[in-house]
Nucleic acid binder design. Sequence first.
RNA 1: GAUCUCGUAGCUCAGCUGGUAGAGCAAUACACUUUUAAUGUAUGGGCCCUGGGUUCGAGUCCCAGCGGGAUCACCA
Length: 572
Amino acid sequence: MNAHLSPEEIVRREALTKLRSHGIDPFPAAEFITTHTSQDCLNQYEEGKEVTLAGRIMNQRVMGKATFADLQDAIGKIQLYLNVDEICPGEDKSLYNDVVKHWVHYGDFIGITGKLFTTKMGEISIKVQQFQLLAKSIKPLPVVKKDADGNVFDAFTDPEARYRMRYVDLVVNPQVKHTFILRTHIINAMRDFFNNHGYLEVDTPVLQNIPGGAAARPFITHHNSLDIPMYLRIANELYLKRLIVGGFEGVYEFSRNFRNEGMDRTHNPEFTVMEIYVAFKDYNWMMNFTENMLNHVCQKALGTSDVQHGNNVLNFKPPFNRVTMTQAIIDHTGFDITGKSEKEIHDFCLSIGLEVNENMGKGKLIDTIFGEKCEKNYIQPTFITDYPVEMSPLCKRHRNNPELTERFELMINGKEIANAYSELNDPIDQLGRFEEQMRLMERGDDEAMFIDHDFIRSLEYGMPPTSGMGIGVDRLVMLLTNNETIQEVLLFPQMRPEKHHQGPDLGAFLDLGVSEDWVEHLPKAGFHSVEELQQAKPTAIHQQLNAYRKKNKLEIPAIQLEDILTWISQIN
RNA sequence: GAUCUCGUAGCUCAGCUGGUAGAGCAAUACACUUUUAAUGUAUGGGCCCUGGGUUCGAGUCCCAGCGGGAUCACCA
């Protein structure tokens, strides 16, 4: 029955039985009311103050009639001092000698009441007077230890295990928990900033008929009643603009987007983008707004405008540098794209060794140059502005140059973090741009966008001049929490489904009446499952098992054919 | 999707040119009433990812698969 359990798991399950037989429910139902957290105890220390708190017991150091342990709650840790005479003032010392010393294990939830004191070694601790098991942990957590110098031993580091069992990761790796707390603080700070400006947080459809607003492969699903294909959203942009048409002055949404594309350290099939649209503004206003917002986020979430990321310190104090796309390319390649034809740019790309092909339009070529030669150089927050019109089908043309658009991307640490436009609100121009996208698609550009006619119709009713900005929340969090992979900032990153290499089910054999002596030998003799027994001839099983017994000189009784027949009858 | 690389005890990892599976921590038992990587003594614990192959013999070599990581392509 317990054949698939590790010895430690068996010990813990046996402890359940022992606890119950002593009248202790290992999973009690009642509320446990705490008065303090571990941090309260440390921050508001008063000798002898009575405190009640709950958490996981993390590290027991049993020293005969006294035991030290760490109690880890949601906030942190505090040391417990469990003394036999304090916990068991009467004759019965069982609560200490049995429960504390033997039936409570690393990882169990306990509730305690006791008095604060300082040990000889100077550590604030709780002298426990009442002790209660709140929930047993029957699977041992990985044990991570730290020495006096802060060196970590046996850290739980395997990425696969950590991502698949994030609950374990969060328990034993405090820095992981801290990252996710920061993530929420960052999002809260953004939300506060927008709300304080009077903008409205909204919800728009996740299930969409047309996957619009970006160029990406969508996840496709099907609606049964309507009998139509539906798509998980790849972006929410077109819906937010419809709301600006509807008369809202400013709307924003933290949008979970889904894209059916590759997965790696910077891509997860679902990811979060914050998009905001504000009426009567342009991209210059949005640059100011964005740098102020990010500085606010850094101050609120991190308490500083100087953010350590890898070997760099990123300075979020406004104003950020602003460089046009044209100037950026001149700065890093010496080539001026102004007024150049598609062929001239194509030839230039070839001359500097970039891989380009005939399907690439002018915008895509320029994008390639920037991506290969310029992007990585912008470590400090920098707005790259005025992108070529071909790259930006939803963006308004530049007021001074119709070949460019009023667009900026915010580059930080050599990567794109935000993207913003003076939004295109001319419905006729917009339709033309969509049609250009269709031509690109026919030419082989699989990133080109679909036409959303209802969106065009909304523009025909009139959209005020508007600036919109989208920011990759996961990537911003990576930046601000000093993480290099998106999996570290998503609680449950997408993983390939777990495959269980199921070992032989010895318990199932026992249930058939196989003797305990024999059960462990069945898989070794070639029978890994009940199904395999069922499919074999009883006489063949009989011969095979006894041949195995003879070959391995087993000191156990030989199998009789009747035994086999009994097993088989048990199956049916 | 391609290439490289890894998969050994609950955790972190050794295991050489193929020859009977190792350490620390964790667990179990005993001792120990202010320890803190507690300590001391003893004990138990392994489908060495899975399936084939080569071999007298495979954790080790070869092939395939599964899973992870890295790089690349696509993308944010």
